[in-house]
Simulated assay, not measured.
Amino acid sequence: MKAIAYTEPGGPDVLEVMELPDPVPGPGEVVIRVRAAAVSPTDTMRRVGMRDVAGAEPPYVVGMDAAGMIESIGSDTDTDLEIGDAVMAIVVPNGSHGAYSEKIAVPVESVARIPDGASLIEASTLPMNGLTARLALDKLNLPAGSTIAVTGAAGAFGGYSVQLAKADGHTVVADASEADEELVASLGADVVLRRGEGFAAAVREKFPEGVDGMIDGSVQLDEIVPAAKDGATIVTIRGDKGERERGVKFWSIVVSKYAKNPEELDTLRQQAEDGVVTLRVAEALPMDQAPEAHRRLEAGGVRGRIVLEF
């Protein structure tokens, strides 16, 4: 099979098309013939060596979102999926195991059918970011009617966080640049405030006691602590943790904890079908244009996901 891989960390141009052995499904696994793989910031971080897996050997393949067709099913696999079914999957990269591949073997618990009415390209944008947003809200564990602030709301993770928080019955205050205000409002945010240094102060103007919880999709960290209520939790995706002033706590999440959560992944499928979450594709590019996809993502301003077609 062909895959987009690299042997040494570096810039986008280290990504190249390589021939790698076809995967064979083990017990409890399926092999997906990948047709689409979403490009996410975690992919670019791995490419530069920021999230290497200890002991992994080159060539390295990144990518955490795949969509395609079931090609084979391993022994002792309890599933109602059949060969030929259109599916999406979350992938936990390790060495040459990553979603930027023509074929990928994954645990069946990491797979769900694609939403009705969605293309494989659209479906590939949902698993990793959708499950990360679900995990963030589960970690906050706030009762319906709470107030949650989301930073980076125009991004994929932030956008899903806004939509899932609204589906859970929360009031959502979100940040946005002037250009993104209409987009973020369309995702369902109740209050949209200008992103940047003044965001925390603006939140306090609207909610004098602070918000009940926060999801920090744009990694503003301590800059947003003043917006949180005393003792509130801020969920972050970049490893920061610990207590700050007034008992405000940071809680770092890792989506791999939800990588074998078929119920949540299937719920996301249903929510996409019902219009609760929006599948946003910025652009689809052929697999051999992976370096260009990474350059565009790192340049900033991408709304939705760039997707590689295989």
Rank of each mutant, 00 (worst) to 15 (best):
A167C: 06
I114Q: 01
D274N: 13
G155I: 00
E29Y: 07
Q163S: 06
A133D: 06
F157P: 01
Q271W: 15
N94V: 13
I114C: 02
E243I: 15
D65C: 04
V276E: 15
G68V: 03
S75Y: 09
D22C: 08
L131N: 07
I104W: 05
E182D: 15
E292Y: 05
R246E: 11
E178F: 02
I70K: 05
D13A: 14
A200F: 07
G231F: 08
L297S: 01
D43F: 04
A156R: 00
A153H: 09
V91Y: 04
E273L: 06
I121P: 00
V61P: 00
V277E: 00
A293R: 02
A179S: 14
V254P: 07
A153F: 01
S110T: 07
V235T: 03
H294I: 04
P9T: 14
A227Y: 08
P291K: 15
L131S: 08
E8R: 12
V91E: 00
L140Q: 04
E245A: 14
D43Y: 06
A66N: 09
A3L: 06
V92Q: 08
S252V: 08
R246M: 14
G11P: 05
V91A: 01
P107T: 12
R280I: 02
P115L: 11
L20W: 10
R280P: 01
K260D: 12
P291I: 08
E102H: 12
A282R: 05
Q271I: 00
G74N: 12
L183M: 12
R134N: 12
M128Q: 15
V150D: 02
G213W: 01
V53I: 09
A202R: 12
Y100T: 05
Y6K: 06
T79L: 02
T151F: 00
E264S: 15
G188S: 08
D80L: 08
G301H: 11
E223D: 15
F250V: 03
N94G: 05
V192P: 02
A136R: 02
V302D: 01
K229W: 05
A201Y: 03
S96C: 09
D52E: 11
V53L: 10
E182Y: 03
